[in-house]
Amino acid sequence: MRLLAVGCCLIALAACQRERRDLRPSPTSLAVFGSAGRESELQPGGAQPDLNVTNPYQGSAAAIAEGQRLFSWYNCAGCHANGGGAIGPPLIKEEWTYGGEPANLFDTIVKGRPNGMPSWGGRIPEYQIWQIVAFVRSLNNKEPKSATPARNDTIQQDPGALLPKSGGGVTK
């Protein structure tokens, strides 16, 4: 009888499988996603350092004009209007929810953002994304004056009239 009980316990014990712990992560999961994807301004380690990625079209008037065309062709204006914001946040803004550096804007366009910004990755080729980035930044006077039109077709940005940090748009 006792022998039977011990035997049952041993059999039950053998049925338990201990979870294996992978102490070393697999190389494919080592990627650290860039800070551009943040949804919060709070982050460990203080303010993020400057990004090294630069827009190859920085300061190019032709690229800004192309970006403006693509902004309307790919219907960015459908949500952001001509930069003033509609159902999407305004693009004329001093502080950007997901960062206003070229690399941040690139990430935002490629990855999309919560509450409606679609992910355009896999659709728009990289060079066109940089052109759109150049145009969007030109709306905020972040592109050199020599490259931006003196008189815009749509909204003209006045440096003194940047929206306050928390103003405008549905998503902060």
């Binding site: 062709w73 790919y74 896999g122 659709r123 728009i124 080729p125």
Partner: peptide, 8 residues
Amino acid sequence: LNSGCVLC
């Protein structure tokens, strides 16, 4: 259908 062709 899975490329940028569909944008235009």
